[in-house]
Amino acid sequence: VPLATDLGYRQPNCDDPETEQVAQVAIDYLNSNVLWGYKHTLNQIDKVKVWPRRPMGEVYELEIDTLETTCYALDPTPLANCSVRQLAEHAVEGDCDFHVLKMNGQLTVLFAKCHSSPDSAEDVLKVCPNCPLLALLNDTHVVHAVDVALKTFNAQSNGSYYKLVETSRGQRVLLPPSTYVEFAVAATDCAAKDVTDPANCNLLSEKQYGFCKATVFEKVGGEDVEVACTLFQAQPQPGAMKEAGPTTAVDLAETPRPPVLGAQMVGAWLVGAKM
């Protein structure tokens, strides 16, 4: 590894096992702390600088490109089993900056900042001219589809009444005319069959999340709804630190909420920052 003594840092190869190990710790940290959207996987290490740290250790400054997977953020499925969202599904990339401390052989994330953005419509249509593009999350068809799908799911449920946590994806499909949505739900203290006023139903203190995929087909005089939800057995603990070390700290209060229906399905999230 070349040393850059005059610059104060060294620059290992982006594909060095050393760099990749640090990047993987960063990705694991990201997925352990992200509270909305989808898990992301490593796509490319853009830059790496390694700074000496006083009194001991080194700090890796990494720039990483990620890709959205199809696993919801709170899905306990290991990242290795999550599929990358393909270009035809309208892929979403993430640009991340990490600072990772290596001390006594232990890696600790000190800082993480990511910004996600969908592929351009032009690029998607280049690969797949008829593929549905991502719609705005506040698109009336998307909002309606989620509402109808959740009502359908609750009407068929023998268990808890589920409330919407987040709409994570929406696509308008031209043929057949329909709207495809993905959204997260959480169980309440109400039984689905007994609910008269959902406002009186509260999320359980020990959250039980689920993730739904639904399509609402437009028909003359009505609509057809197909909805399938996966309820997660174990409640993941968002923000639970896997890394150890006295300098590790995460301030979840700093974690922004999901993008509130912006002009694009774009989000940025600051996972934690403390040195």
Binding site: P2, L87, E93
Partner: peptide, 25 residues
């Protein structure tokens, strides 16, 4: 792969960015 060479210092050879694991968006 893009290969960057830093000149005018001892930073030397820095083969970054690394490989693309899936596809570029």
């Amino acid at each position: 792969h893009e290969v960057r060479v830093t000149v005018g210092g001892s930073a030397g050879f820095s083969p970054c960015p690394g490989r693309i694991r899936h596809f570029k968006v």
